[in-house]
Amino acid sequence: MCMHQPPCPAAVDSDREAAHTLSVRAEQGWSLLCNGVLLFEDTGELLPDGQVIAPHRPLPSPPSTQVKGLVAA
């Protein structure tokens, strides 16, 4: 269990990604957090109970329909 003070968020908490990193395998694209969560570089997660959290990268903004300096009528 986590020995940090204050303790790291649990794997079931919404802020679980804020836990301390124990191990990084950048060449493989993952990190192990103190709460047992495997965090992947694509923002996907594998929780200690086997639950998979799909990647949740922010979506790119749609292209603007407004030309800089001009306002659409």
Rank of each mutant, 00 (worst) to 15 (best):
D42S: 05
W30I: 11
P55E: 05
V37R: 01
L46V: 09
S61C: 15
A19M: 06
T43H: 10
T43L: 01
L22R: 15
L32W: 04
R25E: 13
G50S: 08
A19K: 00
D49Y: 04
L47C: 03
H56Q: 12
E17K: 14
G50R: 04
P58M: 11
S14L: 12
Q51C: 07
A18L: 14
L32T: 02
L47P: 02
L46Q: 03
L47H: 00
S61Y: 08
V24L: 07
E27W: 06
P60Y: 03
L22A: 13
S23I: 15
P55A: 02
G36A: 02
V12K: 09
G44A: 11
S31Y: 05
Q51S: 11
S23C: 14
V52Y: 15
L22Y: 08
H56I: 10
P55V: 02
P48N: 09
P55I: 03
R57T: 09
G29M: 07
V12E: 11
Q28T: 09
S61K: 15
G50W: 00
P9K: 04
P55L: 05
D13T: 08
A26R: 04
E45W: 01
C34S: 08
G36V: 02
P9Y: 01
R16M: 14
E41W: 10
L47G: 01
R25G: 10
I53F: 06
E17P: 06
D13N: 11
D42Y: 12
T21Y: 10
N35K: 03
P60E: 10
D49R: 01
E45Y: 10
A19N: 05
R57N: 04
Q28Y: 09
R57C: 06
L46W: 05
D42L: 03
T21M: 10
H20N: 13
E17N: 15
L33S: 02
A11C: 08
L39M: 08
G50E: 03
D49I: 01
D42W: 09
S31T: 15
T43I: 05
L47W: 00
V37W: 00
G29I: 10
L32P: 04
H20D: 14
N35V: 06
S61R: 13
G44P: 00
P60H: 08
D13V: 03
Q28I: 13
G36E: 02
T43Q: 04
